[in-house]
Amino acid sequence: MAARAVRKYWVLGSKGFLQNLQYTASHLINSVASAIFGLVYIYLWKAVTPVEGFADYTVETVVQYVMFNQVILWFTHFAIRTHGRIRDSVRSGNVATELARPMGFFAYRIASDYGSQLYSLLFRGVPVGLLLSVFGHYLPKNPATWAWTLLSLALGAYIGIVSKYIVGVSAFWTTEIRTAWTVETSLVFGLGGASMPLEVLPPIAQRIAAFTPYPCMCYYPARIFLELSGPGLIWRSLFWAVALTVFAQALTALARRKLEVQGG
């Protein structure tokens, strides 16, 4: 039973992956553009970071931090289209059939979008990393660091997809979800550490950030990768993964009820 369920999710995931392969060319062009953004930030941080560094960062590690985030941001945030797919499905009315499927609506969406995200990591993130590596590179030597980074990233992408899912499900109440997505993007940048280490923020903002899921998508994986923090941060990601899943399921139940009451 469990094996069959796993296979079902696997099939969905790989479909999402394969569908994206068609667009590889334009995504590679896109990668060059995000590498250029990365370049701008690298020079900015080289210019502003004091020679002695700040907090526990040196000039080198800040630059590595920025590069790492430029590589993973497609994976944990930008390339995720879950919200748009749910909105389209609500608009077209297909959502009624999708909700009626034996496989849970939530599980279905997450599994198929996780596949496209793996694609994003490979064909958007990795090329950005390769392009930026011209400006110096860093790879952890300790295999355990790799393992923890990948786990933290996997959770980060999951949290990213679930939070887009929540944005998408809001389409049941308001068909306009662009604003919600824009606000979320601002939070990923403002509190998640997508463009700078959180230590740069004023202390009060740092404290607020620690109580949100956004650092799971950028800051925690980067800290682990750079060996500035231990694997203990994984617990925080795990907590948010569970909490958001519960919240998303509850929201789905509410949406389902709304649909039943209004009959679509």
Binding site: L44, T49, T179, T182, T185, V200, L201, P202
Partner: peptide, 22 residues
């Protein structure tokens, strides 16, 4: 309009935070 404002605000926030710190 709101989206324009929020997106623009991120750019500003970014610059402001860096200058506040450094």
């Amino acid at each position: 309009s709101i989206i324009q404002a929020v997106t623009g605000a991120i750019d500003y926030y970014f610059v402001a935070v860096i200058l506040w710190k450094f």
